[in-house]
Design a protein around this nucleic acid. Sequence first.
DNA 1: AAGGCCTGCAACCGCAGCGTT
DNA 2: GAACGCTGCGGTTGCAGGCCT
Length: 262
Amino acid sequence: MEQQAIDYCNMNVKCKGVEMSRSMSDCGSSGSEEEMGIRKGPWTEEEDTILANYISLHGEGHWNSLARAAGLKRTGKSCRLRWLNYLRPNVRRGNISLQEQLLILDLHSRWGNRWSKIAQELPGRTDNEIKNYWRTRVVKQAKQMKCDVNSKQFRDALRFVWIPRLVERIQASSSRTASPCSQYCSRPLHHVESTSLSDHSMASGDDDTSSRTHSTETKEACSSGNRHLEYLPEFQAFEEGNADLWTYENICFLQQQFADDS
DNA sequence: AAGGCCTGCAACCGCAGCGTT
DNA sequence: GAACGCTGCGGTTGCAGGCCT
C-alpha cells in the first residue's frame, strides 16, 4: 500500500505518449459548477496524485465524500471515473490484443452493449476502453459495409469471417511465440469457442475436445470443399478491411460459401 | 509549411437501480 | 412508500495528435 502511494507520487500522467495539456483555462466549466468551485475537463498531475494517495490510504468508495475529504474540486463521479479508468494499479494500457478482440466480439454477441460486464472478463481493461474499441473499430467496420452493427448481415460477417480469422491469427502467433492463446484472456479460448456465437464452426466446449487446435476448427469453418475461402478476394478484403470490397454482395457471397459447406 | 480532416481516447452527461432515512 | 443521495452504466462529446492534401 505504501509502495503504491510512492508510485503514484512519481507517476507521470501521459496521454498518447505526450504530456497532457495542463491549462486550467482549457478545462471548460459550466457556470453554476464553476461558482461552486467544481472543476471539469482533463485531470492535472497534481489531482491524480492527490486522488491516488488518498485512495491508497483510505480505500475507494463513497466517492462524493472522498472528493471532499481529499480536497479535490471534482465531483465524486469524476473521481470514480478517473480512478477506475486510469489510476487503478492494474489498469492495462496499450493496444487490444487479438485474444482480447476475440473475447470482446464473442461476449458482445451474447451480452450486447453490457460494457462493464464484458470488461469483467478482460482483466485490466475498462468498460470505457472496450466501448471505445467497439465504436472506433467494429462500428466503423459496419459503416464501411453500409450496414447496421446489429444487423444479421453484420453479425454473420463477424461470426463467419472476422472471428474465425482472428482465431487463426491467434493460433499462428501463438505457434510462433509458443505462448498460450489465453495469455491475455481471463479464460482459455476453448471456453470462448463454446459460446452461442460459435455454434457454427467452433462448437466444442468440454475439455475432452479442447485439444483440437483452433486452426483446425478455423479451417473447417473457412474451407469450402476443395476451395479455401482465404484465397477469395472477398475474404482478403475482409481481412484487410478493404472498404471497397466489403460490399453487401460480398458478404452475402461469403455467407453463401459457408452455407454451402454446412 | 500550413490548414483541414480524421481518429482515438479521456471525460462528461443523463438515467436507472439500489440503499437509507 | 416517498424522497433523497450515491453508485454504476451506457451514450455522447470534446480535444489532441496524426494524417492528408
